[in-house]
């Protein structure tokens, strides 16, 4: 087998694995993200004084909260409860939602 052919196979199987992870459960991110709505509003659209989180990519913010937990911040405690992959799925779902507050 030639080197480029092998690379192609490696590449395509990597793509397949990524695709599998995404396709594995199309609603998993939505279900995880729905748990943000009690405080941040349905689909991250806040109707109160707490920030809206729809329409933005929160992945880096969530990772940072988990890496640097401040005891006085309720979100930092929540961040402990999710894996990086779950945070990525939550951020991905919310980023596709309309932003802004009422």
């Amino acid at each position: 087998m030639t080197k480029p052919a092998m690379m192609l196979i490696t590449l395509s199987s990597a793509l397949l694995t990524t695709a599998a992870a995404h396709a594995a459960d199309p609603t998993h991110g939505r279900l995880l993200a729905s748990q943000c709505a009690q405080c941040h509003g349905t689909n991250g659209h806040s109707v109160g004084s707490i920030d809206s989180i729809g329409g933005t990519d929160l992945y880096k913010d969530l990772l940072e909260m988990k890496a640097n937990i401040k005891p006085e911040d309720i979100m930092h405690q929540q961040a402990r409860g999710y894996t990086d992959e779950e945070m990525r799925l939550i951020a991905e779902y919310l980023s596709t939602q309309p932003g802004g507050s009422d």
Binding site: A37, Q38, C39, G41, T42, S46, V47, G48, S49, I50
Partner: peptide, 14 residues
């Protein structure tokens, strides 16, 4: 105390 009312507003609305 302020955040409490923000939480309630979204809890009720969601």
């Amino acid at each position: 105390f302020e955040q409490m009312f923000g939480w309630m507003a979204n809890m009720f609305s969601d």
